[in-house]
Amino acid sequence: MKMTIRYFKQHSRSTLIRFAIITFICLVAITLLTQGILDEYHRDREYAYLHSQYYGHTYNWYVRPGLGLHVFILTILCTGLPMVEMSAFNNRKYLDSAFSFPISRVSMLSVNLINGYLQFLIAYTVSFVWYAIRLAPCADKLYFVPLWGFFLISLLYSLFLYCFNAFFFSLCNSTVDGTITALSWQHILCPIMFTLYDMFDISAKNFDLDVLFFGIAWYPLGVISEAYGDAAAGFSGFYEDVKGIVITTIVVSVLAIVFCLGTLFFFGRKRAESAGEISNTAVSYKLLIPVCSAMLLYWALEGGGGIVSLFAMIFSTVSYIIYRRGVRLKAFDIVVIGVCFACFVMGLMA
């Protein structure tokens, strides 16, 4: 434990500059965004007044648009931070030293995981507080409820996204490998969420618009954002929104725990000798490619979308071929191709 604390202190110190840069960039982004909103508010106060009178508050007009930036910041940080925190573990030279240090692999990984998440947490919280302070002049008391509600649930969601990405970046053998695998697996969340929404009679919001982003892991967060907006505006379907929030929250909580434990479990068994090579694990390309093809079938049956699945499949296949330095088919590869082909044919028939 003593060694773990020593390592945590050292690691935190060594990543302090990175943390300062991240926080600074977030604050600059928030400042620029809120300046636009404030300019608009000051330009047309009459409209703001009317808007407030009509909806009963100014949340939807002045506060909600900025939440998209928070979702963006959250997604970037919860992808980028686990990537950089885990990148060293994909370097064989680094592992030659790191794994000989008198600290357990799980402790070492935990320190990196916690350090990355703490940096996200502080940068994100500071940005959010700054956002609230900046918009205070043009918002009324009602906005605080959905804004901070969104903040709390987004933190929970960030934990899921962070652990999800950390799982792949720690398990994969190179950063490129991890990036392709993590991003490609994200879209698997979509059919899960849709199935759950169907089961609980919740309609997916803004289907047409979100088709572009289908498969991106922040989709549930988008649902939450929409739901809060509707709830604050007192739109009909409030009950449905609450159900959506609850279901989404439960799913991401369970997944956050699963991926966090999975990350620690699998990293303890990581083979240093495989670092830098193609991932040959249960979650790598051999499984990802047929899953992507099954996703394409899913979208074909749904009657739309699937662009992310298509890209994920293309990236995975190309990466696999590049890493393997050619197409040398083994028995399992033939099974994978067979599954993909079957999905393709079924998709055409659908």
Partner: peptide, 9 residues
Amino acid sequence: IFFLPDDPY
């Protein structure tokens, strides 16, 4: 134990 690999990181 102190291990010094052939090409340290």
